[in-house]
Amino acid sequence: MRSCAIVILNYNGEEMLKTFLPSVCAHSRYDVWVIDNASTDRSIAFLTKNYPQVQQINLSENHGYAGGYNVGLAKIQGQYNYYILLNSDVEVTASWDSILIEWMEIHPAYSALQPKILSWKEKDTFDYAGAGGGFLDAYGYPYCRGRIWDSIEKDSGTYNDTIDVDWASGACMVVSAAVFHQLGGFDSAFFAHMEEIDLCWRMRRSGWKIGYVGSSTVYHLGGATLDRASPRKLYLNIRNSLHMIYKNESPYRFSRIFAVKFILEQLAALSFASQGKKEFSKAVKDGYRDFKSNKNSIEKFQPKSEGRKEVRRSGKVNLIFWKWKVQGIKSFEKL
């Protein structure tokens, strides 16, 4: 069995591959694969002509981020100990992958790991997706070292350390291949957004730790597939967050969390409507509607007992929105 496969999921990303694949091929030690989600552009022709060393898995339909990785990785299951799941819009740096895999190999209690993720456009600034390591507040809202809600910090070297986190970013994350498949991979019902947080939550509930290593750095463009400020992304985040919390929390805890989230997010919908952003208001309502209609089909996650104790949430914040919006806290260090 080989050590690691670097796996990029692609959908109509010819321009992203042209821009970012050169750094991956130049700086990576391990096999590079592209899973193509039935692209209709010239992605495959471009890869075949210019990067014959990159191995391809071509799917017959677009399964989204979650399903695309599940279907694609199933085709190489049993060949590698680790996968590095890498967005197509990420520029990597020297030794980035070696640092991550060597760390995983000497820390067998960890099933996922992420590097420091900075912005490709502003390379002295953290990226929205993952930044310096991800956490969850008591109500399931994600935040990061280097990014509190929409407030993003400059990289001053503070987060060059190694710590335990609640979740690793899907923009660039190492996962244990065995654990990924054992847990059924990503939840395909998510289609896209927050599936990596759900996977990491299930990993922690199964007794695995999630890590962050700041000595490895990558640069993420972000928004290449779906703009961060789009109604579609808001809808997916609302729906998928409720799905994730329902699946991983007890019925009692979920009912308490749901009550708080419902109030906050309905107020947000009203605010969007008052600003004339009706499509965003509708996205919130549609997210709740679709969660409720699909709720009975969501299977509660039950960790298999293998002698491992659940790894508790690392984040200590009760409600990150309150800290950010009301108390005005804009950086992780001030929480």
Rank of each mutant, 00 (worst) to 15 (best):
M173D: 05
R42Q: 07
M16V: 12
G315E: 04
A138K: 15
G67C: 03
G13I: 13
E265P: 02
A177G: 06
V317R: 03
S60L: 11
L264V: 06
V326Q: 15
A171K: 00
S216M: 01
P142T: 08
N87V: 10
S293Y: 00
D41A: 03
N12R: 04
W167V: 05
R29T: 15
G276Q: 07
Y30Q: 12
F258H: 14
R147K: 11
R42S: 13
K154H: 07
S293G: 05
A192Q: 01
S305R: 13
I245N: 03
I329W: 00
Q114L: 10
K323R: 15
D286Y: 00
L264K: 14
S206R: 04
V218S: 11
S3P: 12
F291R: 05
V34K: 10
F190M: 15
A268L: 09
K247E: 10
S216T: 02
T93L: 03
F301E: 00
S314N: 14
L73M: 09
Q79D: 02
K233A: 11
K233M: 14
R42G: 06
I117Q: 00
G140T: 01
W33L: 15
F126D: 05
S314P: 05
D166E: 11
V175G: 13
E61R: 02
S119K: 14
L183Y: 09
A177M: 08
L183F: 12
R205P: 01
R145V: 06
S293R: 14
D127K: 02
R204M: 12
G307H: 06
C144K: 14
R42E: 09
S216K: 04
D36H: 12
D124Y: 11
K49H: 15
G184N: 01
K277M: 01
M173L: 07
F321Y: 15
W201R: 15
Q266S: 10
D150E: 13
Q114T: 04
P251H: 03
I84Q: 09
C25R: 13
K325W: 05
S188M: 11
D97M: 09
V34C: 04
I245D: 13
A171P: 03
G276Y: 06
S331P: 02
L85D: 12
L242S: 06
V179L: 09
F258Q: 09
L113S: 11
V54W: 05
A138C: 15
S241T: 01
A74H: 15
L267P: 07
K233H: 04
F190Y: 10
A45H: 08
S281K: 00
I35V: 15
S230E: 02
S188P: 12
N62Q: 07
K123A: 01
G223Q: 01
S293P: 05
Y288F: 14
F280L: 05
I329N: 02
D166M: 08
D161F: 00
D97N: 09
G68R: 07
H220Y: 14
Y139A: 13
L267G: 10
V317K: 03
L100V: 08
A273I: 09
K278Q: 14
I320W: 03
D161V: 09
I245T: 13
K116Y: 02
R308L: 14
L183C: 12
F191A: 00
V92I: 12
S215Q: 10
E105P: 00
A283N: 10
